[in-house]
Amino acid sequence: MLKISDLKASVDGKQILNGINLEVKPGEVHAIMGPNGSGKSTLASVLAGREEYEIEGGSVVYQNQDLLELSPEDRAAAGIFLAFQYPVEIPGVTTINFLKTAVNQIRKKNGQEPMDAASFLRMMREKSKLVKIDPELLKRSLNEGFSGGEKKRNEIFQMAMLEPTLGILDETDSGLDIDALRIVSDGVNELRKDKTRSFIVVTHYQRLLDYIVPDFVHVLYKGRIVKSGTKELAKELEEKGYDWIKEEVDGQVPA
C-alpha cells in the first residue's frame, strides 16, 4: 500500500534523505529508528507533505497514487495521518470544532455527506475513552496550555477520529512519562485491531516498541536505511547503541 523508492529530499539546500527504499503492506507496523539527525523526522514530514522539504528524486506510491503530487490535505483525505512530534497550539480553535471541520472536509473529499452533530459527538465520546482524554479538554483551544502528555494523547485521539489507513507516529514517545506512554500505546494498539491499517513508528528509543510491537525495524543513518530487521534489532540497538551501526556504515571507528 505504500512503496517508497529511492526517495531523496533536501531542506534549505541540504540533502537529508539520500535514497530511501521502504515498502509497507496493509496491517504492518514498521519502526524507523536511528541516531539524531539521521533523517527520521524528515521522512515522516515528507510523507505528510510538509512544504519546506524539496523532493530531489525518487517516488512514493500510496494506494496506486503518486503521493508526492498530493497536497497535505489530500494526503489526509487519502488516509495518511501524521502524529506530530511537537503538536501545534492553535488559540481560538477548539479541538471539537477543529476535528468537526477536519472530519467533514475529509468526508467531502471522499464524496460522503457531512456527519450530523449527534453522530459526531457520539464518535467523540467513544474515541476519547481510547486515550483517556478528558472531554472537557476538547472544548478548549487546540493544545493550548496542554501538558506534553495531553498533547500526545490528543494526537492519538485525532488519529482515532480520522481513522487513517496509514498512521505515522513521529517521536510520539518523546517527553512522555511511563504512564502516558502506556496510555498512548494502548490507543495505538486499539487502532491496530483494524488489520488493514498500517503504521510507521518513528522513534529514537526502543522503549516505545515494548508497547507497540513492530513487525519490522529499520535503522536510518545519513538519510538511508542501513539496516532492517525484526523487533530483535531494536533490542540490540537498545543494548549496543547506534555506534556499531555507524562504524559498519562509515567503516571506521569514530574519534
Binding site: 510538509r50 490535505e73 489526509a76 506530530f84 501545534v88 476535528l99 471541520t101 477536519a102 473529499k109
Partner: peptide, 18 residues
C-alpha cells in the same frame, strides 16, 4: 500567520485556504 499551524491543520484534511 503561523505556517506550522497551517500545515498542522492541512495534515488533518483541512484545505490551506480554510
Amino acid at each position: 500567520l503561523n505556517d506550522e499551524a497551517i500545515f498542522y491543520m492541512q495534515s488533518r484534511g483541512i484545505p490551506k485556504d480554510e
